[in-house]
């Protein structure tokens, strides 16, 4: 596995997500969202601009002493001067006030729609998945929604979803290998992890995509890498992020 100073696959995901956040935005990380939680905390530590960080624990610009294992842990309200609770941030998103939110997926198609519900028929599922949580309402209403997937393979990035839990199209999608961004209504390759080739990304992606101006992912700078080390000093998140699937696939 490629290690620092190049991207680890884990760093590619977290930093890739963090780089979608822009100055003065309102950004949100939700339940079951360890990687976006780390991305938002990282962006607050190392980028030269301010933005508002909301999370599902009710935190508003929190300063947690450490990143919790659960992305809905009350630890994520430490240092927060208010509690912006579930009803508040959903309503904010619904009225168009959420600039960027991060949403997970089991399957993503080329338009950036997502399945988090089931594999097989919904009424008689082969696999019942956790469900979409906020996604069916947040994906179409957030100004931009950015997804992530720890397994980049033809069974996760698919031509056709088994079930459309959330439509409306992700603005961005980050994997250990790639960063996609919506162009003309479809996800296009924006960056690839220099650890692999664009051809390998195409082989591993079930949907067709354009790559008109794709470039290798910009190398992480020292501030990004040291912020990530501070957030994950023991490598607990890197080990538990599910990216280990990658090396298994390689063998």
């Amino acid at each position: 596995m490629t290690e620092e100073p190049f991207f680890s696959l884990f760093a590619h995901l977290v930093i890739g997500l963090a780089r979608f956040i822009r100055p003065d935005e309102i950004a949100f990380s939700g339940v079951n969202s360890t990687l976006p939680m780390l991305a938002c905390l990282l962006a607050r530590q190392c980028y030269n601009f301010s933005f508002t960080y909301l999370n599902v624990a009710g935190g508003v610009d929190p300063e947690p002493a450490h990143a919790p294992l659960s992305s809905s842990d009350p630890i994520l309200t430490q240092g927060s001067c208010s509690i912006f609770a579930n009803e508040d941030f959903y309503d904010l998103c619904c009225r168009g006030g959420m600039d960027i939110c991060f949403l997970g997926a089991a399957q993503v198609d080329g338009k950036g729609n997502t399945n988090l519900s089931c594999i097989g028929d919904w009424h008689a599922p082969k696999v019942r998945l956790p469900g979409g949580g906020g996604a069916p309402v947040m994906l179409p209403t957030a100004r931009r929604a950015v997804g992530w997937r720890t397994e980049h393979s033809p069974r996760t990035l698919v031509e056709r979803l088994d079930f459309t839990t959330a439509a409306g199209g992700l603005h961005g999608l980050v994997t250990p290998y790639a960063v996609f961004e919506k162009t003309d209504g479809c996800l296009a390759l924006k960056h690839w992890n220099p650890a692999v080739s664009p051809e390998e990304i195409r082989r591993r992606t079930g949907f067709a995509f354009d790559a008109p101006q794709a470039t290798p992912s910009p190398k992480p700078d020292q501030r990004e890498l040291s912020a990530l080390r501070r957030l994950d000093p023991e490598g607990v998140f890197a080990a538990g992020s599910g990216i280990r699937l990658w090396s298994e696939e390689k063998t």
Binding site: R95, P136, V137, L139, P140, T141, T164, T165, A167
Partner: peptide
């Protein structure tokens, strides 16, 4: 009423 949801199969099921 609720915002969003357009295109989701949840509305169908």
């Amino acid at each position: 009423p609720v915002a969003g949801l357009h295109g989701s199969d949840l509305a169908r099921v």
